[in-house]
Simulated assay, not measured.
Amino acid sequence: LIYLGIKAWRTEVAPLDVSDGALPPAVSLAALFRGGFAIGISNPKLILFAAAFLPQFVTPTQPQAPQFAILVATFAVVESFWYAVYALGG
Rank of each mutant, 00 (worst) to 15 (best):
L1E: 11
S42T: 07
Q67W: 01
G90A: 09
N43G: 04
G89I: 02
T11P: 00
A50Q: 03
I41C: 06
A51K: 08
L4T: 11
L46S: 06
R10N: 03
V85Q: 00
S19N: 09
L1T: 11
E79P: 00
K7C: 11
A30V: 15
T74E: 06
A87N: 05
F81P: 00
A65H: 09
Y83G: 09
I41F: 03
A22E: 12
L23W: 05
V78Y: 11
A8D: 06
P60H: 12
G35W: 03
I47T: 05
V58Q: 03
L16P: 02
I70M: 14
F53L: 05
V85D: 00
L23E: 05
F37Y: 04
L32N: 02
I47G: 03
L32F: 10
Q62D: 09
V85C: 01
V27M: 10
S19G: 12
L4E: 06
F68C: 02
P60M: 14
F37S: 11
G36N: 07
I6N: 13
A73W: 03
V58Y: 10
T11N: 08
S42N: 14
V18I: 07
Y83E: 05
Y86I: 01
P66C: 06
K45L: 14
L46G: 09
T74S: 03
A65V: 12
V18N: 15
A69N: 02
T61Q: 13
L48S: 05
Q56G: 15
A26I: 07
R34D: 10
A38T: 11
K7G: 02
L29K: 09
D20Q: 14
P66Y: 02
P44Y: 13
A26P: 06
F75K: 00
W9N: 14
F53I: 12
L46H: 13
L32S: 08
A14W: 09
R34E: 15
A69W: 00
A14M: 05
P63T: 11
Y86V: 11
S19E: 08
P63G: 05
I6M: 08
Q64P: 01
P24F: 08
L46Y: 12
P60V: 15
G5A: 10
P63C: 04
Y83M: 07
A30F: 15
P15D: 03
K45V: 15
G5K: 08
T61A: 04
E12F: 12
S80I: 09
F68D: 00
G35V: 04
L46N: 07
F75A: 01
R34Q: 03
D20V: 04
P63W: 01
D17G: 00
F53N: 10
A8N: 08
A31G: 02
I47F: 15
F81R: 13
E12C: 10
G90P: 00
A87W: 04
S19I: 04
L1P: 02
P60E: 05
L88H: 04
V13S: 10
F57I: 07
L4F: 12
E79V: 14
A38Y: 15
W82C: 01
A73Q: 07
